[in-house]
């Protein structure tokens, strides 16, 4: 009997060691082929210029041509992320604390924007923010502006409005999911010691859902940095965002070297966020700190 068991163990022992690797193979190969290979390929090509290799020529050229756009991208990403977090958090806290029908309605309505593609948002924003578009007409009717010299929105203003229109509900969605699971007793305990709503939000709710805020911020930052459609449709003057420059270099000049250098810059911009997110979130979720 004993020898029979050991025989089975011997025969199946090798298979049981191989099985996890076999199960992992599709996912790992997917990541290797579709993510890591293009990443390394573009990084290598960014250091290649004809026969010269390796070289910083692409980076020097990218910096010389697109310095303003690079700084503009950083500015839009930081400002857009910050405003998305502040407004998304405010919307989520309102929905969590108020629990009124109005709050629920506003919250549900805002969710619709999450499911709209950026190209639709861009088109809507173009009509809404045009020199004689809806917003300028309303402001003119309110005598805030003269329609003969309307506010120009096809620059950082319009771009930020477009990003906020899409990203605020997204941040609110992520944050509210966490807020919903905060036990009501924590809030009541705060109220019992004299906390008003603003104290509850700032001292209890926000610290308790900090991981969700970080997730929302990281994802929003990465989305803004990598979105092409919105800056392409909404920014008609210089500077614009790096993604538009990449498309421009490839479409009109077939200059993959500079395009890849700009791409590496975007990776570098998003990488610290991703690393921070992975280190902190994975640690907290698995080990509870």
């Amino acid at each position: 009997m004993r020898s029979g068991r050991s025989e089975v163990k011997r025969r199946w022992g090798g298979a049981s060691k191989l099985l996890p690797l076999l199960l992992l193979f599709p996912a790992v190969s997917f990541v290797l082929v579709l993510y890591l290979y293009p990443l390394f390929s573009s990084v290598i090509r960014s250091f290649t210029l004809g026969a010269q290799s390796p070289t910083f020529a692409n980076y020097l050229k990218a910096w010389a041509l697109y310095k303003k756009d690079i700084l503009f991208t950083v500015e839009v990403a930081l400002l857009g992320t910050f405003l998305s977090i502040v407004l998304g958090l405010a919307l989520a806290c309102y929905a969590r604390i108020s629990r009124s029908r109005a709050a629920r309605f506003v919250n549900s309505l805002s969710r619709l924007t999450i499911f709209l593609p950026y190209v639709i948002v861009g088109q809507m924003m173009r009509s809404f923010l045009a020199p004689h578009g809806f917003l300028n007409v309303i402001l003119a009717n309110m005598k805030v502006i003269d329609l003969n010299s309307p506010i120009q929105f096809f620059n950082i203003r319009g771009l930020l409005l477009g990003f906020l229109w899409k990203e605020v509900p997204f941040v609110s969605f992520i944050v509210l999911s966490s807020l919903q699971v905060v036990d009501e007793r924590y809030l009541e305990a705060a109220r019992s010691v004299g906390a008003k709503t603003r104290h509850i939000v700032l001292s209890i709710l926000i610290p308790m859902i900090k991981p969700a805020i970080i997730v929302g911020g990281v994802l929003t930052f990465c989305t803004i940095v990598s979105t092409f459609t919105l800056p392409y449709m909404l920014v008609t003057e210089s500077p614009t965002m790096v993604t538009v420059d990449i498309a421009h270099r490839v479409t009109y000049f077939r200059d993959y070297g500079v395009a890849n250098a700009l791409g590496v810059f975007l990776y570098l911009l998003a990488a610290p966020m991703a690393i921070y997110y992975l280190r902190r979130m994975v640690g907290e979720e698995i080990y509870g700190y």
Binding site: D183, R185, Y186, E188, A189, R191, S192, G194, I204, M208
Partner: peptide, 17 residues
């Protein structure tokens, strides 16, 4: 509202932040 009642409340699940 509770924040102006000057009460102390101990909860079943303690509710320590």
């Amino acid at each position: 509202p509770p924040e102006r009642r000057d009460i102390g409340f101990v909860f079943q699940n303690f509710a320590l932040w």
